[in-house]
Write a protein that binds this DNA or RNA. Structure first.
Length: 360
DNA sequence: CAGACGTGGAG
DNA sequence: TCTCCAAGTCT
């Protein structure tokens, strides 16, 4: 066994965090944990994981779950396609494998939402198959240990990282090995300030020798963020003897927050004046009946990785109509119903601030 | 295959 | 305030 792998395995036995998904070898549970932890910190994902596997403890229960309910469980975690794909993947496993998560890397790779990383993680951690895991942690650790200067998010850098990762793999205990590599990256070989004084393999580390550990891993520069203006129409209605309700719609298509709910949206290239906004909103409002404009909550920025969304909220009140016909896609929701629907953080905040929904 | 997809915490 | 980024995947 490679001395680096051996030392990291020893370190792992001593220092790894006791996390719930490490208490099991159930492939479904490990699958859920891997998906939740994608691009997500342990302390942010932990509660979500516990709630998720408590609600849906096995593949069959998840496969039978309601779509909105799954999205609701994911609310606030971000990257919501993970939830959609995990659900689709569970249904796929029920259909194709009678609910038994396959142990084979290639079969795993064909399941919706399972890519190279997750397939390798499930195969090695749940089934102890000798497959190499390369995630962000592993890439960082190895780019430093071997002073790989190629950007780790380039095809060539990825190739180099994977090559050394494969050489290090402990084929007798691949699950422990892969977790040790990741845990070491998460606790010691940190992105900003690696704890080289606590490092058990620094004598093998080329970056440390060259004192370039803080410069690695190198990454390709990313695109500047796009600015978008989201003008939400908060259309409230108060009918006789009924709780107040508000109009919402579900987002679809190839864009941010697919599958989540929102208020009817008018997107613009720049900030809109009240007059412009009203003009654009009038066609919809007129279909709904008599209305009057209420206050407007000025644009507040919502910062995402690749977008900066300037959101404003424009309130309107509908005259309780005799027979309101809702354009397709729109639905009315009272407070109780709002609490059942999944919303992006931006909307969730608005609902909370306006006492329309309780914050999780 | 480059670009898109969220959120909250750290420096 | 601003930038970076955390157990990636899909198209």
């Amino acid at each position: 066994m490679n001395p680096i792998s051996s030392q990291l395995a020893d370190w792992y036995q001593l220092h790894h965090r006791p996390l719930p998904w490490r208490e099991t070898s159930d492939p479904y549970t490990i699958w859920v944990s891997e998906v939740i932890l994608q691009q997500t910190r342990v302390d942010q994902g932990l509660e979500y994981f516990l709630r998720f596997v408590s609600k849906w403890p096995d593949v069959h229960s998840l496969a039978n779950a309601d779509d909105d309910e799954v999205m609701k469980m994911w609310q606030g975690l971000g990257y919501y396609s993970r939830a959609r794909n995990l659900l689709a993947g569970a249904r796929q496993v029920v259909k194709e494998y009678d609910g038994a998560v396959p142990s084979d890397y290639v079969k795993l790779l064909k399941i919706k939402g399972i890519g190279k990383y997750t397939a390798a993680a499930i195969a090695s951690i749940a089934f102890n198959n000798p497959v190499t895991v390369v995630d962000g942690n592993v890439a960082r650790v190895l780019s430093r240990l071997f002073a790989i200067k190629e950007p780790v998010n380039s095809p060539e850098g990825e190739r180099q990282v994977h090559a050394v990762a494969r050489d290090l793999l402990d084929t007798h205990n691949p699950g422990r090995h892969n977790q040790a590599m990741m845990e070491f990256g998460a606790l010691v070989c940190l992105p900003r300030s690696p704890k080289c004084n606590e490092c058990v393999v620094y004598q093998h580390c080329h970056a440390h020798k060259l004192d370039i550990q803080k410069l690695l891993p190198s990454k390709k520069p990313k695109k500047p963020v796009r600015v978008r203006w989201f003008n939400y129409l908060v259309i409230r209605m108060q009918s006789e003897g009924k709780p107040e309700s508000v109009l919402i719609e579900k987002r679809h298509g190839d864009d941010i927050w697919n599958g989540m709910y929102q208020f009817p949206l008018i997107e613009s290239e720049a900030e809109l004046s009240s007059a412009e906004l009203t003009k654009l909103a009038t066609p919809l409002l007129d279909v709904l009946g008599q209305w009057k404009a209420g206050p407007r909550l000025q644009a507040r920025p919502h910062q995402l990785t690749h977008q900066r969304i300037m959101a404003s909220f424009h309130e309107f009140t509908l005259h309780p109509g005799v027979d309101i016909r809702l354009p397709n896609g729109l639905s009315l929701a009272n407070t109780e119903q709002l609490n059942q629907k999944p919303f992006p953080r931006l909307i969730e905040w608005y609902l909370y601030e306006n006492n329309m929904q309780t914050l999780d």
